[in-house]
Design a protein around this nucleic acid. Structure first.
Lengths: 335, 335
DNA sequence: CTGTTAGCGCTTTCAT
DNA sequence: ATGAAAGCGCTAACAG
């Protein structure tokens, strides 16, 4: 009973066949006869041989692994994206490793560094909210492999990215509220240095302007952590008194606000119409009256992953660093 | 401009210092003088050296990586467990890789095999619902490293596990409903070959019996996929007409049922009291009237990870394969 | 179709 | 405190 795991050399010795032939057989190379191949596979199974991927990777300088960085997996949107990525990666024979930045720049840097050092073949990343410096990513690209950004846009050239058009989506969302007859629409926004929130706010403003509705700065609420801000926002709305529409930059705050408003006797959508921003399938169950902007999630994952694999395998000859913009969809409920 | 990444040999050559010394310096060995260490570190930074973890791991036969297998990360409970694991692993200097089995036995097998072949140091796993055969795990344990099971119990000896007491938790949950005056309590159960559902059902039955309430088989609903079963269950409840209590094996079905019941004019908890099973913090927001059995999630992660690290580092001399049972907590809301 | 040989980048005795 | 040399397990020329 050997202590350590069997290697190709153990098979090699047992069969008196050179280890390179064993290696070829195990990799199903056509350059080895069916007979010896069968012999080797049988012996391998018998010894309980398990390829040492580490050694293989070191030799080939390829890990067949894709690194994924998400802000946090507990957010439904991101776990759906991950599923999409996995699905695509699985088909193409890639493994994935997932890291969470928890919206921290420092942890993001560390993750990128770990991935680099573990030689993942490429990186899919939605940058943390804190990230404004991109050296770690430039570095990965120069020394590691291709990167595809998804969901959160970055102000970088020569990088591939898959995003949605936040401005347009917000414009549509706001316009929907206007078309329902809303006159006093508040907007739940986020930190303005994040491009995404800025773009969404601009879409909201543009829609108001187009319909000659005055833009009131008091109607724009900025969330810091966007977790339970919804409740705070709801209180402000009750204080304002005349609000008949809410366009929320994110679903979570919308749901929090709706709960609070309903608990205080406000009927939705009779008294206030609401549009949230997300594709969280759960939101349909939780809040049957919540209209949402549906952002592709699973699909975003598959597309981002495809793009990355193309870059890794250098199949993407013409459109090297495309920026794809995926369409959103307005899901109207109970109205 | 060299094409490939710098290695210790590049540093070695540039400084005319042997590569073993470079290696030692980079690993902060005390066996190298401060002066040369500084020299080497400076050069390393200058060249943009990044350790090749693959080579290092191959040599040391250790990856400092823990494999995690979850049924699916989109379930709040599991993403919290993962966060707990990551937290603990991070402190101890381990990386984690996450894989989703999607409740499929086949994918679970493949993941275990991939982890084995990638030489993770140990495995944390919540087995898929389909899993009834444990060869792949026995194999991992024999050839890979230690395993700690969390949340879902397995009928295996000589394995460490962190679980909760499902019977007891269910007993408490059901007793709570009884103490609120419920006489006709339905139970949302799951596939009975899964020990967890069986135990929960038994806890429910035991509580009824203790309080001399007759057990009615028609009051026990078995879910298959436990996703939108809640709505189906709610319909059955409406048909039965006399139900005043629900004990749901999982939170999700409870929430689905409550939505449907409320939409049909049932008031909760005035007409029907509900206890769900989960620790989903969101459930508090979604359903302010949902009393739940709170299962430790983050904490379960940290404990499971600690246990695994002890096993990996063989610090766990006495209690080799402990089965820890964590306490649950009844969170009563709006009643 | 199979064997020989060298080497991926790192760590680790064993010398000095 | 540093160097020389071997080798982790695998793959990829190159020969034959």
């Amino acid at each position: 009973m050997k202590n350590s795991k069997p290697t190709i050399h153990d098979i090699s010795k047992a069969l008196n066949i050179n280890s390179s032939t064993v290696s070829r057989a195990l990799n199903n190379s056509p350059r080895v006869s069916k007979k010896t191949k069968d012999l080797i596979l049988k012996k391998a199974k018998e010894l309980g041989y398990q390829k040492n991927t580490l050694a293989s990777n070191l030799r080939t300088n390829k890990t067949n692994t894709i690194g994924i960085i998400v802000p946090r997996i507990s957010r439904n949107f991101f776990s759906s994206v991950i599923s999409g990525i996995e699905e695509r990666a699985y088909i193409a024979g890639y493994n994935v490793v997932i890291g969470q930045s928890f919206e921290s720049f420092e942890r993001e840097q560390k993750l990128v560094s770990t991935f680099l050092s573990n030689r993942v073949d490429g990186l899919l990343i939605s940058i943390s909210m804190e990230t404004t410096d991109y050296d770690h990513l430039e570095n990965f690209k120069n020394n590691g492999g291709p990167i595809v950004f998804y969901d959160r846009p970055v102000p970088l050239k020569n990088f591939a990215s898959i995003t949605i058009n936040d401005f347009e989506a917000s414009f549509v969302a706001t316009q929907h509220l206007i078309s329902k007859g809303c006159k006093n629409i508040v907007h739940f926004s986020g930190i303005q240095k994040i491009a995404l929130y800025k773009n969404r706010k601009e879409g909201y403003i543009a829609a108001l302007k187009k319909h000659n509705i005055p833009v009131n700065e008091d109607y724009i609420f900025e969330a810091k952590l966007s977790e339970n801000d919804g409740v705070e926002f709801a209180k402000k709305i009750l204080k304002l008194g005349n609000i008949d529409g809410i366009y929320a930059s994110n679903d979570t705050s919308a749901i929090g606000a709706m709960q609070y408003l309903k608990a205080n006797g406000i009927r939705i959508p009779e008294d206030i119409s609401v549009v949230g921003f997300n594709n969280d399938p759960i939101s349909a169950v939780i809040e049957p009256n919540l209209t949402t902007i549906n952002q592709p999630d699973f699909e975003m994952g598959t597309i981002a992953c495809s793009q990355l694999i193309d870059l890794i395998e250098k199949k993407d000859v013409n459109g090297q660093h495309q920026s794809k913009v995926l369409p959103t969809e307005l899901i109207v409920r109970n109205s």
